[in-house]
Design a protein around this nucleic acid. Structure first.
Lengths: 107, 107
DNA sequence: AAGGTATTTTAGTATTTGCTAAACTACTTT
DNA sequence: AAAGTAGTTTAGCAAATACTAAAATACCTT
């Protein structure tokens, strides 16, 4: 899958794992999930997710820098939405992994 | 998706993101990928992935602790294989995300 | 039991992360 | 232009991560 084509190996895996790293923070995962049903501005996240605006903004930047989200300034506010829709299928798969009885108990 | 059921919110997202975190290391992603076509013992990873045996072993432990892999000792060697097969579909999805022209250029 | 191979564990370190609080920038309203 | 609202950026810190090298454990062969 990722380790197959000789020397591309590592660099391709690195790109892939950077995407995964973006979602490997609960805050960022919740942000992306809450955008599945439409755009939101920054202030709309805080109450649901429960951290500071500054922190949300930092996470949004990470997600935007990695091509997952895009932001659009309209007047006072910045509206974020999912740029790379394929992320949604990815999230659906990890949801499946987590919502089984057998769900990976950490030791 | 993950932020929908009231207070479960965060803990469910945390479980999900821990799985993603497991794959958010290039080394671990390469390990899992190279197991898709069958079990391997620890020594078989090193040449492909290019780090020390000790380090590989540490990563294997993380993957095993999180229910992704399982190890079986046979004589001298420990053979690892994918325990949670759903991971394979997940990896397939992120492969799709990475192998498009438009693939998320980091700033 | 001695020596070899396979794997794990430990200790130490450098780097990265996630967060907070506070300062700063930008737009809007009055 | 002053004050309010929305968002970003910065500095600083505690905790987590990834790695290396070396020591420890486990099994196998002779």
């Amino acid at each position: 899958m990722f380790g197959e084509n000789g020397n591309q190996n590592y660099s391709e895996a690195k790109r892939a794992s950077r995407i995964l790293e973006c979602l490997s923070s609960p805050v960022r995962l919740l942000i992306v999930c809450s955008l599945i049903d439409g755009e939101k501005n920054v202030s709309e996240f805080s109450p649901k997710i429960g951290t500071t605006k500054g922190n949300i903004s930092q996470h949004l930047r990470i997600l935007e820098d990695n091509g997952i989200l895009e932001g659009e300034k309209r007047g006072n506010k910045v509206f974020y939405s999912i740029k790379n829709k394929k992320i949604i299928k990815l999230i659906r798969e990890i949801k499946k992994i987590c919502s089984e009885k057998n769900s990976s108990s950490a030791k």
